[in-house]
Simulated scan of single mutants.
Amino acid sequence: MLFINEGALLKVGMKENILSFTSEELKSVFKQKYNQPSYRAVQVFGWLYKDISSFDEMQNVPKKLRENLTRDFFNGQMGIFQSHRSHDGTEKFLLKCQDDNIIEAVKMEYHHGTSVCISTQVGCEMGCIFCASGREGLVRNLSAGEMIGQILAIQKHAKKRISNIVLMGAGEPLQNFIEVQKFLELVHDPKGLNVGYRHITLSTCGLVPEIYNLAELNLPITLAISLHSPSDIERSRIMPINRKYPLKDLIYACLAYTKKTKRRITFEYALIKGKNDTIADAEALIKLIKPVSGHVNLIPINTTDTKLQAPDLQWVQNFNEFLNSHGQNATIRRNMGSDINAACGQLRWQYLKKSE
């Protein structure tokens, strides 16, 4: 029997996902439910982020308390259902939630550390034409604990600390605002994973009201805007969300965000042959984002089973050089994991199709 709260899986049966609780929330629970002092909650919170599989492994926690925790909570750690490793070291994972839903995450190795790209929803309803995540629609939101669970599972598998986090997997993070906000608090906690805000990137397709709400949190994370076209007509074809929040509204929200946070925004731009890759598109892109002074991250689109294709590499380089030579800072994202379907949603979609 499942108990669903705002689309996020917080309970299974009568047990709650303990990874969704902040240390302060655990202190309150321990006092009210177990008549335990605050330091016990701090002990347990710290154990949650170590390589353990059950509450019984919390060696300095009294046996009775461990029994109560086992009765009332599940530890939230996810099982890796499938893993695929690329020749470049990138690993793509299918992870199983407590309700048997399957989600994706990716581990990437860089010279500056190990990064993970995690999902914030099961599926997606944004409908971007180049993304496989939304082909089966939105199932539900993920809880903050389920987001943490992805990182812990990959960290355990990799046997190394995750130093950078990208919320750019399946789902639209800002559509799951409350749980994502809580996730950011949890992952930043020094007693937990202790990942600095400046090592976290949140990507959105452009939910304007939520960008304003995120700005009010004033967190020094990196905001990435999935832009993909400087034209309202073409962007609406590529990304249906543009019909609700057109470019003018999006740019105003970006300006408000940078003014409030003093953080530079990254504009993700997937180059699609014949859609958004002309010099005229480059000129329009420069003009559009000039007031925001953001960085452009060019992404040659991953080929899926759609008819969309990336321009050839020389043209991608030409597009990049044009932007930089006209005063717009831009770089080309390194293509990682293409041989293991590491683009968002591909692996899960293939699994679901095979399971039909």
Score class of each variant (00 low, 15 high):
I52W: 01
L219S: 04
N302Y: 08
F55W: 10
N101D: 09
S54T: 13
K248P: 11
P209Q: 13
M108K: 07
K156H: 10
E216A: 10
D305M: 12
I332T: 01
Q175A: 15
S338P: 11
N329R: 05
V316Q: 06
R243H: 14
K259M: 08
V122T: 00
I200D: 04
E109F: 10
D189V: 01
S83W: 02
K248N: 12
L19R: 02
I251W: 00
F322S: 04
F74E: 09
K50D: 04
V208F: 14
A144T: 05
S236R: 07
M147Y: 01
L26H: 07
K354V: 03
Q36M: 12
K287E: 13
K11S: 08
L217E: 06
T331S: 13
L308W: 04
I233V: 13
I211R: 01
H199W: 00
F93E: 04
S83F: 06
I286R: 03
N164G: 12
L69M: 13
K11C: 05
A224Y: 02
Y212R: 05
P291D: 02
Q150R: 07
P240G: 04
M239L: 06
K290V: 10
K273P: 00
C205N: 09
A280E: 14
L219M: 11
V195F: 00
D72H: 09
L288H: 03
S86M: 09
P311R: 09
C131N: 07
T222R: 10
F81H: 14
V116M: 02
R66F: 00
I251C: 03
Y245P: 07
D51F: 02
M78K: 10
I52Q: 06
R198C: 08
K160T: 15
N164R: 11
F73L: 10
R333H: 09
G145I: 02
L174T: 04
